[in-house]
Design a protein around this nucleic acid. Sequence first.
DNA 1: ATACTTTATCGGTAATCAACGATTGAGGCT
DNA 2: AGCCTCAATCGTTGATTACCGATAAAGTAT
Lengths: 110, 110
Amino acid sequence: MPKRNQCLTEHEQRARPVPDTGSADAAIAALAWAIAHPARVRILRILLARKACVCGELVDQMPLAQSTVSQHLKILKEAGLVQGEIDGPKVCYWVDADGLARLKEIVGGL
Amino acid sequence: MPKRNQCLTEHEQRARPVPDTGSADAAIAALAWAIAHPARVRILRILLARKACVCGELVDQMPLAQSTVSQHLKILKEAGLVQGEIDGPKVCYWVDADGLARLKEIVGGL
DNA sequence: ATACTTTATCGGTAATCAACGATTGAGGCT
DNA sequence: AGCCTCAATCGTTGATTACCGATAAAGTAT
């Protein structure tokens, strides 16, 4: 951690230009945003604890309406962190291991 | 990744109750939220590339108004990811290494 | 003291998010 | 077919966010 008055000079700053990382920034932001809500973190935790879980069970474990939970699941799915599959009248959800790994990797790589 | 129809039975589910993780969920969500915006990720990247950076330099590197960048810096500071110190008329910012480590740890621990 | 920089904060606007109830649609059951 | 269950979607509401310009505060220099 830099000490007081340890900012780089203008010359030093120019010597180390920061590369353009627009799309990468957007990617990490999107992934982070998916877990930027307690309910979505909770959903991930439940799905990790049980290997998989039916939507209705998820709803039972949360103080939220069914439609709200469904909304959060959609967000997690779109971020690639969760997958779901229709299983009879129910829908079974589980954590997309690749997606979660990608999240960890991208955050760890900061 | 579970295969089709690999949801747990009700008995299996009840046997493995998911512990209450309310505050931890909120903590990770708050931290994730701080980097859930491309501009804030960009700021982090710039601060990491240069050990430290004056606010004005940050503004120059982003297509955002000064007041907007200042807002994002405040958010990052409140999340504990960035620290700032007044240096004459300017303000020098740098990444809070502990905070960033905490973010990585908490995400990696998912 | 005055003028100039630099950055934080204020005020306002448009857009997005979170939450809910109600509805729809897709499957199973009798 | 008719009924029931389960989950996604729709429509709405209130709250929050992102962004900007303008202003204020704090420092430096003339």
